[in-house]
Amino acid sequence: MTSHEKSTRKGWALSGPALLWTSLFFLAPMGFVVAVSFWRRVGGTLDRTLTLDNYRTIFEDDVFTTALRSSLEVVLITVVASLLVAYPFAYILAYRVPARWQRPLLILAVLPFWTSYVVRSYSWLLVLAKNGVINQAMMTSGLISSPITLANTRLATVIGFVHFFTMLVSLTIYASLTQIPESYRKAARDLGASPVATFLRVTLPLSMPGVVVGAFLTFVLAIGDFITPQILGGGNELLLPQAIMLQVQRRGDFPLAAALSVLLLVVVGAVYAVFARRLSLERR
């Protein structure tokens, strides 16, 4: 046995427990979800003959195609809005704030990240509710005469998402911006570029890795999130994770829930495939 073979063996042996855990409790259940998605619920039991019925249901029933479309819309709006809010914020932090203030400010900016999903969404409900902070503030100041509906709308879901992902995307963009040597911007100005041209031709392209990573993370995490749309969006609009949960909790239709989960995995996988090249370039 060569020494490389020996170390290959040892390496795999040491990774064994983690690998076993991931296989047993991640790969196997995922495989099982895929399998169940091809079964059918008959009454209270599972019919294990393979069928495409669930997928047919998904693509024929308006409820599910709408849920998919809504999910994509909400998530894309979230990605764009988060980038628009976070980019200037990260830019100011990276280039206009004295170095010793940057880290403390950044840490402060991501603090609310560490409220749990449930608590964070619940807090937004307190802000957006009919008798919540915003409505009462606007009524007291005379801006509106009767409360407006903010909670239980798509807007509320997007606000909740943008809140969370602004923090995340600020981090990735800030990291990218601080990696650009100052001399690049100096050189651009020196060669005659205006501040706007310097930004568009040098800073922005060089910060794209942070933008891409942030956008990708936002997409993946937002499209799989159940809590924010459930608490803030309410029942008015069904997103994909809510549709899955509905099958699990109310209908008990696990095969359909499994098929919807597979759909979710496929969407994420497709987006990953699109981003993969840029994500791996980033790593280099």
Binding site: K10, G11, I223, G224, V248
Partner: peptide
């Protein structure tokens, strides 16, 4: 030990990060 197939091993161990908690919970 830098075993052969280290990249695959790493990818496998990191894979759950890409999957929604909801789907992992449902699978389990």
């Amino acid at each position: 030990y830098r075993p052969r197939g280290a990249a695959a091993l790493r990818a496998l161990l990191i894979a759950p990060l890409g999957v929604s908690y909801l789907v992992i919970g449902l699978g389990l």
